[in-house]
Design a protein around this nucleic acid. Structure first.
Length: 939
RNA sequence: GGGCGUAUAGCUCAGUUGGCUAGAGCGCAGCUCUGAUAAAGCUGAGGUCCUUGGUUCGAAUCCAAGUACGCCCA
């Protein structure tokens, strides 16, 4: 007789080989055919909401691994919260306006006015952005990210743009809008501002000059330096600049507070000259100015000179000495000529000191009418005239050509200048925005915790937010500005509402087409429409306002969580906070989670030149999305995330173990229907109840880790559970019972009942991470169920009361000790499989109390053919202490078994052949085959 | 140069308030099984806890300096 046919071997359609790269797309096609996202929404309707607001990626170029990490983490959040009993919708978004898209369109169609007018240009931008959205969307879907992909929010949707204007109106109502000036790169040939990305650096020779600014009240200087007033007479503070043309706009001279300065006297030809310069540069300044070595009259740090009054080198006005950390002694004199209208640092330090932003230069690069001495001259040509004036007045110390890297227009290849232009700001102070924002930061939960320090530091130190841009592809600022005063219309907020109405209907062309008279009637002649568009950071910064307005069904305000990379503390997190606090008075999120950047296995950033770039498309196309998702989950994202082929290979191996564990469980659930075959919890065999208890404990940890976003712990714990608790312990022990006892008998049904519960629980633990694999398991699990695992919640694992008379921890420890002894027999060539051995275990009273109850069934746990428990006193000399169980009190002897092998259960038993009808079987198998079958209590 | 981080076996991660010979899984090596089989089980070898100094009876853990790397600025 072929007894193999009488053994219940595993059977399942769940393949061992995942073949994810091929099969995931098939599963995806089905999910979208069946509208899986919509089905889930219906199934979970009515549950408490959990809102993750998607930070919109920029709609340009294919996604890289950082995008994949970001979207997968969001997907894990959304799915785990769904399993946790929430209705957690996911509405993805894209950031669609801005310069990079303009540049792409320029490459193809040229600049506005060449082939396309502004309207057609914007249309081309819109089409380009839409095509990029389509490409990225397919890649995101392929990652298994489930969301409302058919109805994403795009910042270029007319309704979004309209809501953005309304959000802007709220900011104006709250009093945060401020008009001001700011220096920007300005091309004299374009006659317009340039973005940072439109500037390229090239070598250029400029006139480098050292100029003396006479101290007006030398007695004040003497007092500060603690010297005789006569010694300070005629003192000049020396500055160095390569842009003489900015001197007419000079408002101050800036020193570093901690650098040491000296007053030095030099007397060429008996003509005394006293200069104030950085000590470290004094010699160099004298040398290039052709002055003989001097004598030091006094020294002090820059901070001692703050507020000292100086005379402008050629205008009849005074300028102060100020302090700034940007000053260095790398070159020059250690004193920086400061013209807030012509430099970003000058502008920033100037704001701190309340300096005027003087801008005497017109958009053609010529000094404006009324500019003393140089009116009408082009700035670069005026350099010579200025040097000449300085020479005449005796203020020029040195004049040399100087070659340096200088910004040029990328189109004209001509040098650009910094020029102050009128801009619009969200003021940090005007209506208390900074203070309010800081208070809100303290109320938000930051993950990891140091994120709070990081963003608070940025908000504390940041300047006003410049929200205007002189660009074509963006949402118009839509203000009416008074022709003379430059102030916005007093009813701006109300007017914006009317503009928003039109934009919602007709798109943002409605603003460009608008005749001011339509809204302003007779006032129209006094106002003009702004040409500016909004900073794209404002586009995405008001998602908190626009998305709930667009999708009231899905996205309440405020959001539960925002999740982005750590660069977004300055970027989206900060802009969203400022925009929300400015418009609504509160933070837009309760919790903010940050992930690190992806680096290679040596911790270096990914770059083409290093050749260490891992493309998500490539990973998904070979190993599969679930392996990529497992890598994301397994990596501690709070710091940098390392990835390499080696790391992905390891991840893939771990995946196989988890998959195979599920496969084994499914295979042994063959023929099990939980509705009719489940054993009542209180009747479960002890080790099955123990396994359930292990699973329960793990589930508590898994759920807690999902709630605290500690996914890498979940991976570790679940993987360990598969390997140790299940693989090495429970499932290995279970095989004999599953295979050899009657298919429908209590021992096997008990095992199946527990396995069923474990797999029901496990498929849910895995689902947020291994979504494809989980759904695959879900479909093959016995029992009636919904279409998707994501329609369910964490599995209620039954609580089986543990029998206190047996200590399972001790049993498993004993098993480990016995394994070590069996290994010695194996190495000695005395046995192969453990079933070729017998174990004798000697226990003292204490250990007997922990282990004794298991009795005869110990052999099933040890997977030996025999196992006996005896008193410690009877142990032979060769017995080995079982140190894992206890330091003393347990000893082991193992030996090969000589009995015949039962061909059915493979145990070596003395009773093989006892039944004439089955000469090759042991009595246990005969009973299982023909009788009611054996009964088990412990294992 | 500044701010915020990170650094524990080849890989991914644990390591409560300072306290046993620093742990786990994977990988690796050896062995076994062939009824989870492009699987499974057993055993074993792997660590200057980034470096240096300090505090302490005692430091992976606390303090200081430094190095490397990452993000954001300058």
């Amino acid at each position: 007789m072929d007894y193999k046919q009488t053994v219940n071997l595993p059977q399942t359609a769940f393949p061992m080989k995942a073949d994810l790269a091929r099969r995931e797309p098939e599963m995806l096609a089905r999910w979208y055919r069946e509208d899986r996202y919509g089905q889930i929404r219906k199934a979970v309707a009515g549950r408490p909401h959990f809102t993750l607001v998607d930070g919109p990626p920029y709609a340009n170029a294919a996604i890289h691994i950082g995008h994949a990490v970001n979207k997968i983490l969001k997907d894990i959040i959304v799915k785990s919260r769904t399993l946790d009993g929430h209705d957690a919708p996911y509405v993805p978004g894209w950031d669609c306006h801005g310069l990079p898209i303009e540049q792409q369109v320029e490459k193809k169609h040229g600049r506005i006015g060449q082939k396309l007018d502004a309207r057609a240009f914007r249309q081309a931008c819109r089409e380009y952005a839409a095509s990029q959205v389509d490409g990225q969307r397919e890649d995101f879907k392929r990652l298994g990210v489930l969301g409302d992909w058919d109805r994403p929010y795009l910042t270029m949707l007319p309704r979004y743009e309209a809501e953005q204007l309304r959000a802007f109106a709220n900011i104006i109502r709250a009093g945060h809008l401020e008009r001001g000036f700011k220096p920007v790169h300005w091309c004299l040939d374009c006659r317009s501002s340039l973005a940072e990305a439109e500037v390229e650096y090239a070598d250029r020779t400029s006139p480098a000059i050292d100029v003396g600014f006479p101290v007006t009240v030398t007695a004040d200087l003497a007092r500060r330096l603690g010297i005789n007033p006569t010694s300070a007479e005629g003192a000049e503070l020396a500055i160095w600049t390569t842009t003489p043309w900015t001197l007419p706009a000079n408002q101050a001279v800036c020193l570093h507070p901690e650098i040491e300065y000296v007053l030095i006297e030099s007397a060429p030809d008996g003509h005394r000259r006293r200069l104030l310069v950085a000590a470290a540069l004094a010699a160099a300044v004298l040398a290039r100015s052709g002055l003989p070595e001097g004598r030091t009259l006094a020294r002090c740090t820059g901070s001692a000179l703050e507020g000292l009054r100086l005379h402008h080198p050629f205008y009849e006005r005074e300028v102060p000495v100020i302090l700034g950390d940007h000053v260095t002694v790398d070159s020059g004199t250690g004193a920086v000529h400061t013209a807030p209208g012509h430099g970003v640092e000058d502008y920033q330090v100037g704001r701190a000191y309340g300096l005027a932003v003087d801008n005497p230069v017109g958009n053609d690069g010529r000094y404006l009418p009324g500019t003393e001495l140089f009116e009408g001259q082009q700035v670069f040509k005026a350099n010579e005239a200025i040097v000449e004036v300085l020479r005449e007045r005796g203020r020029l110390l040195c004049h040399l050509p100087y070659q340096h890297s200088y910004p040029h227009c990328w189109r004209h290849k001509t040098p650009v200048i910094f020029r102050a232009t009128p801009q619009w700001f969200v003021s940090m102070e005007q209506a208390g925005l900074r203070q309010r924002a800081l208070a809100e930061i303290a109320r938000v939960h930051w993950v990891p915790g140091w994120g709070e320090q990081r963003i608070a530091g940025m908000v504390e130190g940041r300047p006003d937010w410049c929200i205007s841009r002189q660009r074509a592809w963006g949402v118009p600022l839509a203000l009416f500005v008074h022709r003379r005063s430059g102030e916005p219309h007093p009813r701006s907020a109300e007017l914006l509402e009317q503009v928003a109405e039109r934009v919602a209907q007709h798109g943002l062309e409605a603003w460009f087409d608008l005749d001011a008279a339509e809204l302003l009637a007779e006032e129209a002649t006094e106002y003009e429409k702004t040409d500016d568009v909004m900073d794209v950071w404002l586009d995405s910064g008001v998602v908190h306002h626009c998305l709930p307005a667009l999708r009231p069904d899905a996205v309440p305000f405020p959001a539960d969580v925002y999740l982005e990379g750590s660069d977004q503390h300055r970027g989206w997190f900060q802009r969203s906070l400022l925009a929300s606090v400015a418009g609504k008075g509160v933070a837009p999120y309760r919790e903010v989670v940050t992930h690190g950047f992806v680096v290679d296995d040596k911790g270096r950033k990914m770059s083409k030149s290093l050749g260490n770039v891992i493309a998500p498309q490539q990973v998904v196309g070979t190993l599969g999305a679930d392996v990529l998702r497992l890598w994301v989950a397994a990596t501690d994202y709070s710091a940098e995330m390392s990835v390499s082929d080696e790391i992905l290979k390891r991840t893939s191996e771990s995946y196989r173990r988890i998959r195979n564990t599920a496969r084994f469980l499914l295979g042994n659930l063959h023929g099990f229907d939980p509705a009719t075959d489940a054993v009542p919890v209180e009747e479960l065999i002890a080790i099955d109840a123990w396994a359930l208890a292990q699973a329960r404990r793990l589930q508590e940890e898994v759920v807690a880790a999902y709630r605290s976003y500690d996914y890498h712990l979940i991976y570790q714990k679940v993987h360990n559970f598969c390997v140790i608790d299940l693989g090495a312990q429970w499932l290995d022990i279970l095989k004999d019972r599953l295979y050899t006892t009657p298919a429908a008998g209590h021992p096997r049904r008990s095992a199946q009942t527990a396995m069923y519960h474990v797999l029901e629980a496990m498929v849910r633990w895995l689902a947020p991470i291994l979504s494809f694999t989980a759904e695959e398991i879900w479909e093959l699990l016995p029992g009636k169920r919904d279409a998707s695992v994501f329609m369910s919640t964490w599995w209620a694992l039954p609580m089986a009361a543990a029998d206190a008379s047996l200590d399972w921890e001790a049993v498993m420890a004993l098993k480990a000790d016995v394994s070590r002894e069996l290994e010695r027999l194996r190495v000695a060539g005395e046995i192969g499989a453990p079933l070729e051995a017998a174990a004798e275990v000697y226990l003292d009273e204490a250990q007997r109390a922990r282990l004794g109850a298991i009795g005869e069934e110990l052999r099933f746990v040890l997977i030996t053919s025999e196992a006996t428990l005896r008193p410690a006193g009877e142990r032979p000399a060769e017995a080995v202490a079982a140190t894992t169980v206890a330091e003393t009190g347990a000893w082991i002897v193992v030996r090969p078994v000589e009995d015949a092998k039962c061909v059915r259960c493979w145990h070596r038993r003395a009773d093989v052949g006892a039944d004439d009808r089955h000469p090759e079987l042991c009595s246990r198998c005969v009973g299982n085959l023909e009788g009611p079958g054996e009964s088990r209590r412990w294992a």
